[in-house]
Computed example of a mutant assay.
Amino acid sequence: MIIGTPREVKNHEHRVGLTPESVRELTVRGHIVLVESGAGAGIGAVDDHYVAAGAKIVASAADVYGAADMVVKVKEPQASERAMLRQGQILYAYLHLAPDPDQVRDLLAAGVVAIAYETVTGEHGGLPLLKPMSQVAGRMSIQAGATALQKVHGGRGVLLGGVPGVAPAKVCVIGGGVVGFNAAQMAVGLGADVSILDRDPDVLERVANHFEGRAKTRFSDQANLAECVAEADLVIGAVLIPGGAAPKLVTRAMLKTMRAGSVLVDVAIDQGGCFETSHATTHADPTYIVDDIVHYCVGNMPGAVARTSTYALNNVTLPHALRIAELGWQEAMRRNSHLADGLNVWNGHITYRAVADALGMEYVPMESALA
């Protein structure tokens, strides 16, 4: 199979779909790997590293898209990239389709086989291809929130951990999954006063047992959510509906109850965001203010720590890439139902129900693609 990795073009996205080490795993099995020149610069991997791993360096993204049977990326293809996709081509990347109807329409029109990292499941549950980036984003959310709380960035001027004689900042983490757990770990480690909200009693028990009183847990009903947000200096939005649009849990009315200069970090922004006032921002211009509340809504947070993120991502995406390359996507999915859960678009059809429901479009069962 011919596998291609283009340079990422999303704003300040420095990750790359394949590391040189991953390329080596593919080329030693006889596959051809095309890498756009400069694609690995953001992780310190120069073209010579890829050549040594057996890749062929090509001059442009058009060369990758024009020849590759499977395109391996990190972030969803931008409009300029979607114009280069073709019928039957495999796209293997984070897609986050539910809040992005333009991308969906282009993928349907192109007739690609679109496999979304974020909906591939694991043998023991969970979303293993999303997990490492959720870990990174959760930890980064506290760094970003702490920076945004500084007065120079429009925040309240509050230090997360406080100092002796001055109370620490209050941090409200909405969602106790991978993102929320990692955010709470960082916030607790810095000495903040942390509350974690979730609706799953098992999650609350697991989180409570882990933190042993160093973080409070609360059931996420309307009253507890409103109280936690109103009291918080920093709110982390860490909710997830796999493949679907994030629910708008924090309303604009709730912002009126918060202190001026408090900060919202919406880690769910890739799925549309969980704050009513959220809209996607970039690393170049990460924050904005609504009703005196600072919003940080960068859609590709892990791109800022590209080397760590890329290697963590390749650890989990490469095994499926190898299966697809060896067997073809259909046979690979027939043999591995967890990979099949990643099929979001096929031959002009949406094959992931949560995406179809979010966009009010027709859903075609994945089994149709594998028949």
Score class of each variant (00 low, 15 high):
Ala253Met: 00
Gly261Asp: 09
Gly213Ile: 13
Leu313Asp: 00
Tyr311Ala: 04
Val265Cys: 10
His210Glu: 09
Val229Ile: 10
Ala215Gln: 11
Ala325Glu: 03
Trp346Glu: 10
Val203Ile: 14
Ser262Asp: 11
Gly273Tyr: 09
His279Asn: 12
Pro247Lys: 02
Asn344His: 03
Pro242Tyr: 05
Gly342Ser: 12
His210Thr: 12
Ala260Thr: 05
Arg259Ala: 15
Cys274Gln: 12
Val203Cys: 14
Leu322Arg: 09
Phe211Met: 12
Ala340Phe: 06
Leu249Ile: 00
Ala245Val: 14
Phe219Met: 08
Cys274Ser: 15
Asp292Met: 05
His210Val: 00
Ile289Tyr: 08
Phe211Ile: 08
Ser220Phe: 02
His295Pro: 01
Ala226Gly: 04
Asp292Glu: 15
Val265Leu: 11
Glu331Asp: 13
His320Cys: 01
Trp346Gly: 00
Arg214Tyr: 08
Leu318Pro: 11
His338Asp: 09
His210Ala: 15
Ala304Gly: 10
Gly303Glu: 06
Ala253Trp: 01
Val298Asp: 10
Ser262Lys: 06
Arg218Leu: 15
Ala232Thr: 01
Thr282Arg: 09
Asn224Tyr: 12
Arg218His: 06
Tyr296Cys: 06
Gly243Met: 05
Val298Glu: 07
Ala245Phe: 00
Ala208Leu: 01
Gly273Met: 01
Glu231Trp: 01
Ala238Val: 04
Ile269Cys: 13
Glu326Ile: 05
Ala260Trp: 03
Cys228Met: 13
